[in-house]
C-alpha cells in the first residue's frame, strides 16, 4: 500500500527530527543537529532491512518515490518564499559578506575533494 511508504518516510523524518532536537539540547545549541541526516540514514537502514522477504513492495515504494519526485517542485516553492527582499536590503556589507563566503566555500570544494578522496576512485 502506498500509505506504508509514506508512513515509513514520516516515521523516519519524525525520529530524525526528534533525535536532532535532543542532540541540540544536549549540546546546548538552539538548533536541530543533523535531524534530516539521521532520518535519511534511518530510511536507508529500514528499507534495506531483512533482505528479500521484508523488502518493500513496489506499491509501497511508490509512496516514497512520489515525495522524492516532488523534491524539485517543493524546492521551487521554497525559493519563492525566501526573504530575498531583506537579503538585498541589508546593504553592501551583508551582500559582500554573503558573496565572499560563498565564493570562498566554492573554491574550497576541489581542495577538500582532492585530499579526502580514497585511492580507489569509484565515483
Amino acid at each position: 500500500m502506498v500509505i506504508y511508504g509514506v508512513a515509513l518516510l514520516s516515521f523516519c523524518m519524525l525520529v530524525g527530527v526528534l533525535v536532532g532536537d535532543l542532540l541540540g539540547q544536549m549540546m546546548q545549541v538552539e538548533a536541530n543537529v543533523g535531524g534530516v541526516g539521521i532520518a535519511m540514514l534511518l530510511l536507508l537502514l529500514l528499507s534495506n532491512l531483512g533482505g528479500k522477504e521484508a523488502a518493500l513492495s513496489p506499491i509501497t515504494e511508490k509512496g516514497l518515490g512520489f515525495w522524492s519526485a516532488m523534491y524539485i517542485p517543493i524546492v521551487v516553492a521554497m525559493a519563492a518564499r525566501q526573504n530575498v527582499a531583506e537579503a538585498l536590503s541589508g546593504g553592501w556589507m551583508a551582500i559582500v559578506a554573503g558573496v565572499a563566503a560563498v565564493a570562498a566555500s566554492f573554491a574550497m570544494i576541489p581542495v577538500l575533494a582532492h585530499f579526502g578522496r580514497e585511492p580507489r576512485d569509484d565515483s
Binding site: L9, G65, M70
Partner: peptide, 17 residues
Amino acid sequence: MGGAMFRDFAIVATAFG
C-alpha cells in the same frame, strides 16, 4: 509547500535509493 516541513520530508525521500 516550500516550508521546512515539506522541504525536509522531500529531502529525506530522496535518500531512498
